[in-house]
Design a protein around this nucleic acid. Sequence first.
DNA 1: TAGATTGTTAATCGATTAACAATC
DNA 2: TAGATTGTTAATCGATTAACAATC
Lengths: 204, 204
Amino acid sequence: MASNSLSFQTLQRLPYYLDYLREVETENVSSTSIAAEFRFHEVQVRKDLASVSRLAGQPRKGFATQALIEDIEDILGYGHIDEAVIVGVGHLGTALANYTGFGKYGLKIVAGFDIRIEHADCLNGLPLYPMDRLDPVIREGGIRLGIITVDGAHAQSICDQLVEAGVEAIWNFAPVLLQVPEGVIVQNENMACALAVLSHHLRK
Amino acid sequence: MASNSLSFQTLQRLPYYLDYLREVETENVSSTSIAAEFRFHEVQVRKDLASVSRLAGQPRKGFATQALIEDIEDILGYGHIDEAVIVGVGHLGTALANYTGFGKYGLKIVAGFDIRIEHADCLNGLPLYPMDRLDPVIREGGIRLGIITVDGAHAQSICDQLVEAGVEAIWNFAPVLLQVPEGVIVQNENMACALAVLSHHLRK
DNA sequence: TAGATTGTTAATCGATTAACAATC
DNA sequence: TAGATTGTTAATCGATTAACAATC
């Protein structure tokens, strides 16, 4: 019934549901079967689906698979391309820039920046620019998503420049917590945080 | 006062606290100042510190900086090296294997595996092996942490092999939810989940 | 002493789970 | 009809925040 606000948690489960729905060959699919697949609680799945599906589920039948796929794709913005810039073209930045799989998530990296770049260049088809081109490239392209793969010491300054140029969402791989103004969202991908959980488990 | 069970959330904030504490030059540090630095709620910081610090904080002074650093390093297992293997040496796997920064988190990647490797080889000092060496290398080395960077279709099977060989913690970069037995922990690093949150924000 | 800071107990909040009625 | 499945309302749970007493 497609409410207008989705919980953070629900959003992160949607890509898993989508993968499963695409594999399923049947016309309908039940929340029960999805829950069984992922070992989720079936009410949790039902609530998730209720909040994204435009069509209500039908007793005894479940949800129309194809309609559900389209509803989730819509919410996740697949099919509609979001253009992004990446700042910091070291090991990780290069790996991300070279990764060809983002297309299916509706993400296209259109430019890379790095303090070590002095003249416009190209890396496997990705245009690379020196830092002073950051603002005009973002403004002129109407880019709304920035990926930060510089080291921690420079991340906040890069973040400020991205926001100043008009970026509204930041995917941050630097190990710092960025301060951003209201309306800008940051998704942190901090290896140290992930490792904290794993290491602590091993230490017990 | 160092309780024995830390919340998942608290654990993930510890690396940030640690960075800040290492920068601070004063003998003592207050939860108030840490909260201000990260714009956290000060009671949250105080509770986090209470659950990791062996020494109680002192009114008007705060916590002993050095003691707190050591307590957090202990809990995160820095200083004690965890050896890990990485399975899947494509773009991402190579980037992780080449990343030199894990040492400071107490992580050392000691071997790489890939179905495309037919004979023992070496990549920037990292020994690479064919898949049939996975079990003996893990068993003989007593390796407890496995990193999965293969594609989604193979991840569960690799996961099963890692667990069978004795791995107790898995860092999963494949876009699937792995099923593991009790006692084994999985930390998911799913690009699609992260992007779900960012894309949805842009779509509003 | 006054005031900064700690630690604790209770209230709030968001997400998950339980219980159950509605429907095809 | 019986039973699988949906959707909703209430209870639980974990984490955060508020309120406040204790201490140097």
